[in-house]
Amino acid sequence: MANAQEAAAPNLGPAVELRHMHKWYGEFHVLKDINLTVRHGERVVVCGPSGSGKSTMIRCINRLEEHQRGHLFVDGLELTNDLKQIEAIRKEVGMVFQHFNLFPHMTVLENLILGPTWVRKIPRKEAIETAMMYLERVKIPEQAHKFPGQLSGGQQQRVAIARSLCMKPKIMLFDEPTSALDPEMIKEVLDVMIELAEEGMTMVCVTHEMGFARTVGDTMVFMDEGEIVEMEAPEEFFSNPKNERTQLFLSQILSH
């Protein structure tokens, strides 16, 4: 993976860059002056209380939400209203959702090859091979011809990760990928994510899994009330949080 990435990306600038980004819902200021840079190969973990704007922020990165002020660059391209630009960026950015959002009327395999065949325009046979390879990697190749409704939550989320990977993205976004799962299924999803991180994938994860953050995170971002309150390396972030709000949040989340 890592090799392919380096070959494909001569661009040595940041993978994602948010510069003075603001967003409002009507009059409500959800994102306030967000500045964030993600290098290629960097793993950023975003945490914060609910309603802090962390999901909105990563949804802006592939334009599921529109920002209104400031600049947002993905792999050197600026996100504007230009549809071609948006499509080009979405090709390079994979996203995993809290509720999996698999297509229930298609088999697992069909879910996996839809994007590659219609967006990347890869021959069907090749797409199936790639899909099977990723299904092996998330350890459920035997489920290829089942429908999402027949799988457990953990399996569905692994399929969803594989679906994103089939697009060979440069950047992966995770929007609370484990918070809709039963406790016994969280690990199987996190294992897949850790493996991915070890291969050098650029990742932005919104998650409350602090163990995961410690293991793979390069940078911790703490958000509250639409602002980035603190941004540190994990060791510093967990052992010596500077901001009061971060301390309070960490004490709440780590107390049990």
Partner: peptide
């Protein structure tokens, strides 16, 4: 469903 499809670039 819309969001997942959109994020695939469809």
């Amino acid at each position: 469903q819309w969001e997942a499809a959109r994020s695939l670039g469809l």
